[in-house]
């Protein structure tokens, strides 16, 4: 499990930030995008994917989450 932060850039697309590794990446897909359920599996532009426990509403970004790494390309 790692602490991550999800925020939104000016264009409205989601950004993923992993402070521990100082990794900033675009999120290319998110499993649930609300309004009742938000989160789940997320796919990064670099091929990695993470999982965050889905929330019951769309969160106010930026927000920190606990995320689990789901395989994917090793860097």
């Amino acid at each position: 499990m790692a602490n991550i932060m999800i925020s939104q850039d000016n264009g409205g697309s989601l950004l993923f930030y992993l402070p521990k590794k100082d990794l900033e990446e675009r999120i290319v897909s998110l499993e649930f995008t609300g309004p009742e359920k938000w989160g789940g599996e997320l796919q990064l532009a670099n091929g990695q994917s993470y999982f965050i426990d889905p929330l019951e509403r769309t969160p106010k970004l930026p927000m920190s989450f606990r995320a689990r790494r789901l395989g994917g390309a090793e860097d």
């Binding site: 932060m5 925020s7 402070p19």
Partner: peptide, 9 residues
């Protein structure tokens, strides 16, 4: 950027 992100959140 770290502290800026923190303040944003």
């Amino acid at each position: 950027n770290y502290i800026s992100r923190h303040m944003e959140e």
